[in-house]
Design a protein around this nucleic acid. Structure first.
Length: 866
RNA sequence: GCCGGGAUGGCGAAAUUGGCAGACGCAGCGGACUUAAAAUCCGCAGGGGCCAAAAGCCCUGUGGGGGUUCGAUUCCCCCUCCCGGCACCA
């Protein structure tokens, strides 16, 4: 928030600079105007309230809610300026607009702040919210604050707990052991973001982070994997990029599971599970006759068994595990050099009974498929590379289909294409790959050693966090009854305050006996409370439903109200949320639909992802010292200028390179608008209220009228479609330039008052979505009594936008040679006639033959000469 | 490696359907106003050449190379670089 004293200081210095005799009011003083309207808007909390029941069409525009770090940055300003412009545009078009804001207010930074400043997380968070809310209000964003949602308050998070119980009832929440990052020095779990590139702890740079197994709660998002994938097709209003990212994230792949039996021979190699089954996942069962080894992930359970009695193998496998972990931490698991170890054991290919060696390899990962593959060097890049290195057999079983040739050429290995024909594959030889996949899967199913399956990259969502500042998971552990859910009537499980937050020893809540010790609701005996809290992505998965019915204390929301407002018509936010937040939200919606709470399949109709705000070619950051503070911009140039510039400097979907001199130009433009209306507003008070529909006579009046309607069209079209607000604002600038060029004519009375009134009023309305403070000031200056917020958007009239004369460029052989001026309704014949009469063109075509005349109506004439 | 997005003056950018490349703004230059400066208003402005200068004219120009077309920033093929996402995905 710009502290009041700061703003006043700036206002004073500005007044002093300009106090040179001019009348005070013809100077655009953003601070004075914005202070005045800020005051009025504060005193009217109902101003931006959505109507609960309305005959109007609804429009739900939403910007992603911020984490309350304590200060808005330019990325926020850009995000909210886009949303606010749209909300205001929709209001002026007569819609019942829902435009809410809230706070994603659980999360780790509050705990860090608690440790650093000895401030309780709640106090720190609520203080930050107050600061940021004040900043938003100062920027003039039109939010319905009566619906504000703060996720860290019990009236919100109790519904997280309620949903969790419902998920648990439906078997969609479950507990299982899972790996977490553990720092032995801190004695706590670390988020992935807290593990450094070298695999060490962010606080102890010489301490390697370990992987530990912990019992964690998971949500079964994978049950919806297919629908989440399929319904991406129902989202034409989403950026292609985001849809693709989600598709890849879900990562569906069809294939088959095939069982290879581990054999009994060579028992001296350990006490491994002779006769055990190795399940492999393959998308190319058609290549199975070419399998010459089995490759297991180093962390595969069978490998553990095989290595149990074999210290040498154990040592080598551990090394493979270390290599994988290192590569994973560096983020380039694909770059790791392939290594492997033979186990000395064999497994049987169920298709041909062949015994093939079983290896452990570092290029197989445990968390995809089954963690085991059949290696087919002839038809897979990675298997080929591995086989070459370790001299394993490479057996060709697919030949490329070459049309019209008798003999088939041996392909260059590895041959991985699908359009081939099987050879050396027993009864399946001669089939195409496609047919073979079907027949061989069938064969495996009949034989009981395999089946068709679908694998996803998407994993179930682990929501347990060993942290304090989050929603308590409403579960109990009773010695007698085991895992017991907290009964609904006992919700919310309140997050206790005055908890000592340190980095030592796992979940802070576990050290609060009043919290951790509870009574079992089943047997009345002692029970231990779950002391982990929920991932904050749970909070943001459904918050936008809560806005529609924010004060409901009997349910998360009323389904009827949600049905009126959903789906969200337009959601706007950073592309960094393209995967997690947006996929979790979609999952949550589908779960709520299956519960019968909502009737929409998808939460968001249209999604818009804005670009980043950068400076000097780099993302703004403290370490680079290139941060631009919104507060400072507001004090120096005003909220309108800051907002308008954030829309003007680049199309909203692209990155925006912030330039201080650019915002100065915007401030100058706002000044030009202000001064024009200041000088010409008087006319408005005696002007007519009816729009000018007749074509004006004087050329100055015509020019103004024409430009006005062209501008209305450009701005309106952009709101309807591609949202290039930068060009909308350019268009308004051009209109203002025309008005300035007409000032002599206006002074001479060549522009009728009615038009002068209309052009000013429309100009102010066109500007209102982008620069609301100035627009309101000028609206009042024009003597308008009704609210600008819901003033009708001007109508474009093509008749009035029409040019009378056109300048037609004339090309000869595609090169511009001259321009001719013709009446706007000129026929092709007339244009050609004029062109042939043009001196330059006559000179250029002299002595040559015109072979072809290409006329693009109103656009261009091209003469092809020889 | 795969999938997206991008590359246009000194800078941010525009050209919405294959039709005048550079709208609008910044920075720059010139002029008006002023004792002066600021502010404001008006004008010039891709690069190069012919020219003393101006007007005018010519050539050239949208990352590079090729193609389609009367005509390409826009469509097709190949390549380079930058940004984002995913990644031994079996």
């Amino acid at each position: 928030m710009p502290s009041t004293d700061k703003s006043e200081e700036a206002a004073v210095t500005q007044s002093e600079r300009h106090s040179s005799g001019r009348s005070r009011d013809d100077r655009y003083d953003a601070q004075r105007i914005e202070a005045k309207w800020f005051e009025r808007w504060q005193n009217n909390p109902q101003l931006y309230a959505a109507e609960p029941h309305s005959a109007k069409k609804k429009y739900y525009v939403l910007e992603m809610l911020p984490y309350p770090s304590g200060v808005l940055h330019m990325g926020h300003v850009r995000n909210y300026s886009i949303g606010d412009a749209l909300a205001r545009y929709m209001w002026m078009n007569g819609y019942n607009v829902l435009h809410p804001m809230g706070w994603d207010s659980f999360g780790l930074p509050a705990e860090n702040a608690a440790i650093q400043n000895n401030t309780p997380p709640r106090q720190w968070t609520l203080g930050n919210i107050a600061k940021m809310k004040a900043q938003m209000k100062r920027l003039g964003f039109a939010y319905d604050w009566s619906r504000e949602v703060t996720t860290c308050l019990p009236e919100y998070y109790r519904w997280n707990q309620w949903f969790f119980l419902k998920l648990y009832e439906k078997g969609l929440a479950y507990r299982k052991k899972s790996k977490v990052n553990w720092c032995p020095q801190c004695a706590t779990v670390l988020a992935n973001e807290q593990v450094l590139a070298n695999g060490c702890c962010w606080r102890h740079e010489d301490t390697s982070v370990e992987q530990r197994e912990l019992e964690q709660w998971f949500l079964r998002i994978t049950r919806y994997a297919d629908e989440l994938l399929r319904d991406l097709e129902k989202l034409p209003g989403w950026p292609e990029k985001v849809v693709t990212m989600q598709r890849n994230w879900i990562g569906r792949s069809e294939g088959a599971l095939v069982d290879f039996k581990l054999d009994y021979t060579q028992p001296h190699h350990g006490f491994g599970p002779a006769g055990a089954t190795i399940k492999v996942f393959t998308t190319r069962i058609d290549t199975i006759y070419g399998a010459t080894s089995i490759q297991l992930a180093p962390e595969h359970p069978i490998v553990n068994d095989l290595a149990a009695g074999n210290p040498e193998l154990r040592r080598k496998v551990d090394q493979l595990i270390a290599e994988q972990r290192k590569a994973k931490e560096k983020g380039d698991i694909g770059e790791i050099e392939k290594h492997g170890v033979p186990t000395g054991r064999y497994a049987t290919n169920p298709f041909n009974g062949e015994k093939i060696p079983v290896w452990v390899a570092n290029y197989i990962v445990m968390d995809y498929g089954t963690g085991a593959i059949m290696s087919v060097p002839a038809h897979d890049d990675r298997d080929y590379e591995f086989a070459k290195k370790y001299n394993l057999e490479i057996r060709l079983v697919i030949l490329p289909i070459t049309e019209g040739e008798e003999t088939m050429a041996e392909p260059v290995l590895p041959f991985t294409a699908h359009d081939g024909m099987l050879i050396n594959s027993g009864p399946f030889s001669g089939l195409s790959c496609e047919d073979a996949i079907e027949k061989m899967t069938e064969h495996a199913e009949k034989g009981g050693f395999g089946n068709a399956t679908v694998t996803y990259r998407l994993k179930d969502w682990g929501i347990s966090r060993q942290r304090y500042w989050g929603t308590p998971i409403p579960m109990l552990y009773c010695e007698k009854d085991g895992i017991v859910a907290v009964p609904e009537k006992d919700l919310p499980v309140i997050l206790p305050e005055n908890v000592e937050i340190t980095l030592a020893g796992g979940s802070p809540l576990a050290r609060v006996p009043e919290f951790a010790n509870a009574t079992c609701p089943k047997c009345g005996g002692p029970a231990r409370r779950e002391t982990d809290t929920m991932d904050t992505f749970v909070d943001s998965s459904w918050y936008f439903y809560r806005y529609t019915d924010a004060h409901n204390d009997r349910a998360p929301f009323d389904s009827k109200i949600v049905q009126y407002w959903f789906p969200i018509d337009q959601y706007i936010g950073g592309v960094e949320h393209a995967i997690l937040h947006l996929i979790y939200s979609r999952f949550w919606t589908k779960f709520m639909r299956d519960m019968g709470l909502v009737s929409n399949d998808e939460p968001v109709e249209r999604l818009f992802t804005q670009g980043m705000v950068i400076k000097d070619g780099a993302k703004m950051s403290k370490s680079l010292g290139n941060i631009v503070s919104p507060d400072e911009m507001v004090v120096r140039y005003g909220a309108d200028a800051a907002r308008l510039y954030s829309l003007f400097a680049a199309p909203p979907d692209r990155d925006l390179d912030w330039q201080d001199s650019g915002i100065e130009g915007i401030q100058r433009f706002l000044g030009r608008v202000y001064r024009f209306v200041f000088r010409n507003a008087a006319a408005a008070h005696v002007g007519t209220a009816t729009p000018v529909r007749a074509v004006e006579q004087s050329s100055a009046a015509r020019a103004i009228q024409r430009k006005l309607h062209q501008t209305i069209k450009r701005v309106t079209d952009d709101f309807q479609g591609r949202w290039h607000f930068n060009t909308c604002i350019s268009a308004i600038m051009e209109l203002v330039n025309v008005l300035y060029a007409s000032e002599d004519a206006i002074a001479q009375g060549a522009v009728p008052k009615a038009l002068l009134v209309e052009v000013q009023r429309d100009l102010v309305v066109l500007l209102a979505p982008f620069a609301p403070y100035l627009a309101h000031e000028l609206w009042e200056m024009l003597g308008q009594k009704e609210s600008l917020l819901k003033a009708p958007w001007p109508k474009f009239d093509p008749e009035l936008a029409k040019e009378e004369e056109l300048e037609i460029p004339v090309q000869i052989n595609g090169k511009l040679r001259s321009k001719i001026v013709v009446p706007a309704d000129a026929t092709e014949e007339l244009v050609i006639e004029r062109a042939l009469a043009d001196e330059k063109l006559r000179a250029a075509t002299a002595g040559k033959q015109i072979a072809k005349k290409i006329y693009v109506p109103s656009k261009l004439l091209n003469l092809v000469v020889k």
